[in-house]
Computed example of a mutant assay.
Amino acid sequence: MTDGNVPIIEAKKESIGMIGMAQDYLDAANFTNKGLSEGLLAMRFEAPIDFLFAHGLELVLKGCLRMTSKPDLEVGNYQHDLDRAYWDLKRIWPAATNLAESEVRKYWKDKLRTMNAGHVASLESFGISDKNDLAEFGAVTNSDIGQSLPELGKVISWYSQLHNRSGSSFRYLKVGLVSRPALKIAGETLDATRESLSVGVQSLISTAENEARNG
């Protein structure tokens, strides 16, 4: 592949650099988010964590688009529009985005089924086994879980709306409430945004790295 007058090796170098930095932002986001959730870190605002996730996503999307020989100037024109970058990548390199979407669904399916099974086992230890009684105490079916799985595209749209607003709402203080998509199961509320994005970005990074090594 060639990119205008730029040899493929130069485009690949640029994309590999973006992918590597995307991994660093993702690692920093996961580390900081873990510290916050475990009470090891106190923050006045959580927006910096979302900025790390959003910028990691931005870098991996632009790196993947660069890898498909999309011109550097055109890639730069996406700015913070994560939605447009993602859907363009989905059109140009569907194998990469389809795998990321599949891995996000599998992550949540496995996690939610495991949590639900533990919840059911706990209820049954107290003699609650009738399916109607179990449902009343928050137990769900595999079908219920399947219908509630987060979709990577919708998570990216949520990040895009905030990241693309006035130089990124994650970087500057904005007045107003932000509604974050979440999941509830077995009496717990789970962050459907950060976990989904983490899995999706890691999948795209791995796909891009494999392509760089073997392509």
Rank of each mutant, 00 (worst) to 15 (best):
A42V: 14
R44T: 12
E209S: 09
L190M: 08
Q161C: 03
Y78K: 07
H80F: 02
P48H: 01
L177G: 10
R91M: 07
P94C: 10
L36Y: 14
T114H: 10
D27K: 02
V201E: 00
A121K: 15
L41Y: 10
L204P: 00
K109M: 12
W158P: 00
A28N: 13
A192W: 04
V60C: 01
D88W: 08
G153A: 15
G138S: 05
L82A: 02
G76R: 14
I9E: 15
W87R: 14
R165K: 14
T207S: 09
N142E: 15
F126L: 13
K184P: 00
G167Y: 10
L152W: 01
N214G: 03
P48C: 06
A121P: 02
H80R: 09
E101Y: 01
E195F: 04
D72N: 08
N142F: 06
G118N: 15
T68G: 08
D27S: 15
N116A: 04
I156A: 01
F45A: 13
D133S: 13
S179L: 12
A42T: 14
A28W: 05
E209L: 13
F170K: 02
K154E: 15
R180Y: 05
Y25R: 14
L162M: 07
D72Y: 09
G63E: 11
L89R: 09
A135L: 03
G17M: 07
G146W: 08
N142A: 07
L183W: 07
K174S: 13
A100F: 00
M18G: 09
D81H: 13
G56A: 07
L57P: 02
L65H: 05
K90N: 11
L40S: 09
I49A: 09
G76E: 14
S143M: 12
S168K: 00
M1W: 05
L204K: 01
A208S: 15
T141F: 13
D110F: 05
E58I: 07
K62A: 08
